[in-house]
Design a protein around this nucleic acid. Structure first.
Lengths: 138, 138
DNA sequence: GTGTCTGCAAACCATTTGCATCGGT
DNA sequence: ACCGATGCAAATGGTTTGCAGACAC
């Protein structure tokens, strides 16, 4: 995708990438739109979407397909796992090193060619654990 | 969700559940709508959505949060993994037994309470492997 | 009879797209 | 000057919802 055509470095593209690299959260397209708008008030949401798609296609950022309605984006292009809070939706990184090769294990069970995998945990973040405990006292 | 109120067994609900149990594929709401319509021509898509949501809430079926635009549903409520074809979107079961306890490993790396996890593979199904090979000959 | 469920259609909301213009190269 | 990128607004598409009538209990 987007093989030989020239990729222009526009102000919009640059700032979107900068902002995404700057944060460790995993913002949605709209989150990013709000962030970028501080610096480029006239940018459009469509441009944010288009650029995130382009950058993800080039492997410069990662498009996360975590549960939930909105897509999220990650400035860290290396493979790593995520955990999502069931209550507040927050997504954190999880630097998990497994001694099992999941893709190899899967390859033995299917006739599919395996290209990649995704492992995602769901739980309660520390803050929401507290809030939940408080709610139960009532 | 839907705790104490009486759950009525309507023809629609029954047939939706029957159809989902009958197949081993992982149909989208619209797939199911088409299937159920053969037996109940006047059913509405909204009813299919509402019932799938209800049944999933009761744990009778599973709502899959696989990558891709549409939600998919699984008549098998037990935990198991899935592999999705990147090319045609087909979703197959994967009966993978891991000797590593993923949730335990994750728990050691985060302050979240872990509730569940999801592991999904992406690849090419046998049919699409063929089609891809043919395309490359050209 | 009561309160849930349904069909229908409209509403929703994240994302995509067509188009005229702008701006990087 | 060319052609990719942008802003804007409208379109798309999956899913949800409000409502009046239907039906399970």
């Amino acid at each position: 995708m987007n093989n030989d055509s020239t990729l222009r470095i526009t102000k919009q593209r640059q700032i979107i990438l900068d902002e995404l690299m700057r944060v460790t959260s995993h913002p949605t397209a709209d989150d990013l739109y709000q962030m970028v708008r501080q610096k480029l008030p006239r940018i459009s949401l469509g441009t944010v979407y288009r650029n995130l798609e382009t950058l993800a296609g080039l492997g410069m950022i990662q498009k996360l397909e975590v549960a939930g309605t909105q897509k999220r984006f990650d400035g860290n292009a290396a493979t790593h796992y995520h955990i999502r809070c069931q209550r507040c939706g927050r997504v954190d990184d999880l630097d998990l090193r497994l001694n099992t090769d999941l893709e190899k294990a899967a390859a033995e069970k299917t006739r599919f060619t395996i290209l990649r995998h995704r492992l995602e945990f769901t739980g309660l973040c520390p803050e929401c654990q507290k809030l939940n405990a408080q709610a139960e006292e009532a």
